[in-house]
Design a protein around this nucleic acid. Sequence first.
DNA 1: ATTCTTTGTGAACAAGTGTTGACTTAATGG
DNA 2: CCATTAAGTCAACACTTGTTCACAAAGAAT
Lengths: 248, 248
Amino acid sequence: MVAGWSRVEPMAARPDTMTRSADNPSAGTARRTAPRRGEARKALMQAALELVSTEANFSAISLRRIARQAGVVPTAFYRHFEDLDALGLTLVEETFRELRRLLQDADLSALPLKGLTRHSVELFAHHVRDNRLLFQFVVKERFSGTAPMRAAIHDEIRVLTHALAAIFARFDEFSHIAETDLRMLSDLVVNTVIALSERILEVAANHPEDTALMLRAEKQLRLIFMGVGQWESRPEDRDETDRSPADG
Amino acid sequence: MVAGWSRVEPMAARPDTMTRSADNPSAGTARRTAPRRGEARKALMQAALELVSTEANFSAISLRRIARQAGVVPTAFYRHFEDLDALGLTLVEETFRELRRLLQDADLSALPLKGLTRHSVELFAHHVRDNRLLFQFVVKERFSGTAPMRAAIHDEIRVLTHALAAIFARFDEFSHIAETDLRMLSDLVVNTVIALSERILEVAANHPEDTALMLRAEKQLRLIFMGVGQWESRPEDRDETDRSPADG
DNA sequence: ATTCTTTGTGAACAAGTGTTGACTTAATGG
DNA sequence: CCATTAAGTCAACACTTGTTCACAAAGAAT
């Protein structure tokens, strides 16, 4: 939120030369007067997230609106990002960096399979809620973003899916499942978790409905794992549906 | 496909004022071809679909671009739609009208449960491929569209999910499953099928990879149904996660 | 034959857009 | 302490945008 550099002044702002004039409520009281390095960059990212959360999606908001929301002149944008796409890619990156950090800290493979489902669902759901804006951004851009952004998101999800398959492989309960089927399984699980987070994001923040959603997702995962017990992998099974899809 | 006028050609012209002038041959000869009633409306819808398929998403393309692509002057748009949102909602409606027609004609509940999975997946996948542009539109707008569009799409999906639960309820194999769990189940199935169609749309049209994707989805559904056999519904289970989520 | 309604056209508008270049200022490194 | 560079500012450009208005043609209705 870049507080208050640029001597305020009346400034008689006509174009967007104004940074925090009457219609820009982001001013408040100037706390941090000095133009701290890299502050504006963060402010731009945050502004983009806020606008995407409010408006429809990323390609619907302009560079100038982002700058305005960040309390920064439009040209300042170019000091930190080459173009809007670069900003978007940075946000995607940050989202999955945070997510990977969470999963790494939680060390799921140390748990018994029994409690893994419930624990993972709760962990993930809370993380989504705590990083609402970031995940909202990614969910919206996953299919509607520009080609590079879509590719980036899908790559990240694919990596996560593989990692999950690797975790599954460590459990005895999955020893009878072929590698191909493990990917099929983790893909199903990831899809279910994504659907959960999409729903959490649709609902008002901290809404009590969240827990109902989590319960349902947990049930779905339990149902899936029940099927795993009876699953028989056929040796001839083989799929190649695993490469990056839309790198056109 | 809108035969006559779509696609405006190279168009080095500057304003969008020209529609069928000297370089547009559809003027003098055909008296009947040009002003046919309702043609322009269809042309606008088709143009929107084509542009959304090419570009990132709906809110990224302008009214003027749609009109240009449809071979129509911008003001003509207002003769057929109140604004862009109205166009979008019409497209969503058409998508699900087509889909409902397909599912109705196929009469899934007449089949034995055995072949239902494979048959349904194939039916659905082919339908998605045959209506690529429509489904691409809906997939993109499901989360990134304006609030009314998102609401419309979610409502339609919710209706389909309920219908599927109703179909399940007719099979003996599901007689031990509580109603709540039937919805939980059909939700899982619908999510899986949506994920399938999203992937089909990412891949180049008629790509051979499609069949691999279908195979994987079919496996996932089979796995789910295996779990159903062992599932025990607990009577106290009850969820309210079923109402329309984001009508804010 | 007349009206009325629908559909399409062209000009104009105020507003917003991305991007440029030339400056100013602050911080950093030697 | 000075030179260099990173960060921010301002004015201006050439466009594109949504929407309006008045007008023309043509079908349908009377």
